[in-house]
Amino acid sequence: MCGRYATTRTNADLSSFFEAVDVAEPLRPSWNVAPTDPVPLVRISQRHEARVIDTARWGLVPPWAPDLRGGARMINARAETVATLRSFAPSFARRRCLIPADGWFEWVRTSGKQKQAYYMTSGDGAPLAFAGLWSAWGPEAVLTCSVVTTAAAGNLARVHDRMPLILPADRWPDWLAGGGDPEQLLVPLSERDLEAIEVRPVGSEVGNVRNNGPALVKPVAEVTLF
């Protein structure tokens, strides 16, 4: 799964990188995004007839849900079932988005109750584009979103068995367009692109949602794991 990630780019940076119109409320950079936090996303706006940078609550809430509380359990949508599950299928068909991220966190148990945190990030420092879904809930049309996850591969599988579905730029148009063949849309990242992702050991402070700041993604001494 993906339960914590970092997204620290300004609206202007995201607008330039994704070639999108900025309609989002400015967000503070976060090195420790947690479920239900507000996050930036990229989606197609019929009103603007273009890609837009928007803001959503992390944890998708279907329009038929009685309230927003269930969103905390809907932060991820599995690629294997996203096209068929009642909660996600309508958004997969018509409301797909990109979720910008600097990287994401996972934990590996080392011994007893001890865990080592790892941060997965682009080796060249460029933003990552997670495949995402969005929905609008309630009379105020609160935007909510989920990250699509897939089976981890390569070195990433040594940290966790799941990872975000990351989309390179040439796949953004088809993903955002809606419709399409699910098998082609949900193809995992290529082996070459997987090798470009850095797996970085980081400190335990990221485990507390109250901690934030660039120190959370700084490398620490490697543990004997791989």
Rank of each mutant, 00 (worst) to 15 (best):
D124N: 14
P100R: 01
P139Q: 15
R96W: 07
P139T: 14
M120P: 05
K113M: 13
R96T: 04
W137D: 01
S91V: 04
R162F: 01
R158K: 14
A151P: 12
A77T: 01
W107R: 12
A101V: 07
Y118I: 06
K113Y: 09
V159R: 07
D161I: 08
R162E: 06
T149F: 05
A157S: 14
A126T: 15
P127T: 10
A141C: 09
S146Y: 07
S91R: 06
H160W: 03
V148H: 02
V159K: 08
D102A: 13
N155T: 14
A126I: 06
P139A: 15
T121W: 05
G112F: 11
S91W: 06
W104I: 05
T81E: 06
D102G: 11
I75A: 03
G132N: 01
A89E: 07
L133I: 02
N76E: 11
F105Q: 00
T150W: 10
C145L: 10
E106K: 00
R86Y: 08
T110E: 13
G112H: 10
I75S: 03
A117W: 09
E140S: 12
H160T: 01
A153E: 13
G123I: 11
A141P: 00
R95C: 04
E106F: 01
A72T: 13
R96F: 07
R86D: 14
N76Y: 11
L85Y: 12
C97I: 06
R78N: 02
T84F: 10
A151G: 13
N76C: 12
F88H: 04
L156P: 04
M120D: 02
S122Y: 04
M120R: 08
A72K: 14
A93S: 12
V148N: 00
S111V: 12
L156Q: 09
E106P: 01
S111F: 10
L98D: 01
T81P: 09
S122W: 02
G123M: 08
A153V: 00
R94K: 15
W104C: 07
A129Q: 02
E80T: 03
W107C: 10
F105S: 01
M120A: 14
S87M: 10
A141V: 10
T150D: 12
H160E: 01
A77Y: 01
A117T: 04
L133N: 00
P164Y: 08
A72R: 15
S91I: 07
I75G: 05
D161H: 15
L133D: 00
Q116S: 08
F130R: 00
P164E: 11
Q116H: 06
R95Q: 13
A126V: 11
W107D: 05
V82P: 11
S87A: 14
R86G: 12
A83D: 14
F105C: 02
P100M: 01
R78H: 11
K115Q: 13
A83L: 04
T149L: 06
N155Q: 15
S146R: 03
K115T: 08
E106D: 13
P164G: 08
F130Q: 01
W137N: 00
L165E: 07
K115V: 04
Y119E: 02
K115M: 07
I99K: 03
A152K: 00
V159I: 15
Y119F: 15
R109P: 09
R96I: 03
A101Q: 06
I99H: 06
S135R: 06
